[in-house]
């Protein structure tokens, strides 16, 4: 299925947020996730189902003022 990750379309096989992160190579990176604009905590990633055309945001610490 195709999902949009950080604004870019990707073909993915996995169907939950935790597995999609591994599939896309994030591994053990310190990131926060939101699916279709809703925060998905680390603990709820395995049960957060991903569907075709979903939008997944993967954010990490960055410089800020």
């Amino acid at each position: 299925m195709k999902i949009r990750v950080n604004g870019v379309w990707h073909d993915v096989v996995c169907s939950d947020v935790a597995s999609v992160l591994k599939e896309l190579g994030y591994g053990d990176a310190v990131v926060a996730t939101a699916l279709n604009g809703v925060f998905v905590s680390v603990g709820s990633r395995p049960s957060a189902r991903v569907s075709d055309a979903d939008h997944l945001e993967i954010l990490a610490p960055m410089q800020g003022g």
Binding site: N6, G25, Y26, A29, A32, A60, P61, M62, G64, G65
Partner: peptide
């Protein structure tokens, strides 16, 4: 210090290095 969140690329992983620095 103030910090923020921004999109992370699985390839570059820029945020991981910054977080380690902080």
């Amino acid at each position: 210090v103030t910090v923020s969140l921004r999109r992370e690329s699985s390839g570059e992983r820029a945020g991981q290095g910054f977080w380690s620095l902080v």
